[in-house]
């Protein structure tokens, strides 16, 4: 116990489980509400837009869904890379890249959703 160590993997491990739980909830509700419980004909673009623009909670739900998905995916890839004990420079580059990708994907996702919210039918 003489070495100076970081507990970062404790935090990322915990957040991975937490985001996994949220995703399980998101996927369960998404698939059930939008596919299995949908009884009024085909699910087309108009139906999706109507649902998204009709309810405040669906908007919140999907705006949260995107960052949780992105975080879970990138953190999972990082956990795999960490198994190979990358060097300091490499891991810093990858982490920076993942932050950029993560923020970009979340922003693009949020923009797409807000466009749909306002699209109307």
């Amino acid at each position: 116990m003489a070495e100076k160590v970081s507990n970062q993997s404790l935090v990322t491990w915990f957040l991975q489980r937490l985001s996994g739980l949220f995703l399980a909830f998101f996927l369960f509700t998404h698939i059930n509400v939008h596919h299995f419980l949908h009884r009024e004909g085909l699910i087309d673009f108009a139906v999706v837009v109507e649902r998204l623009s009709g309810s405040f909670w669906w908007k919140v739900y999907y705006l949260l869904f995107v960052p949780f998905c992105v975080f879970h995916a990138l953190n999972g890839i990082w956990a795999i890379l960490a198994d190979y004990r990358p060097s300091g420079g490499f891991s810093l580059t990858v982490k920076a890249l993942f932050w950029v990708i993560g923020v970009a994907m979340t922003v693009v996702g949020a923009m797409t959703l807000t466009n749909l919210f306002g699209a109307g039918v």
Binding site: M1, N7, Q8, S9, A82
Partner: peptide
């Protein structure tokens, strides 16, 4: 608690899959 801090490090228990 000192042991747990060390075991929770980046080469400890959280690396186990």
């Amino acid at each position: 608690n000192e042991r747990l801090a060390y075991l929770a490090s980046d080469f400890g228990v959280f690396r186990c899959h």
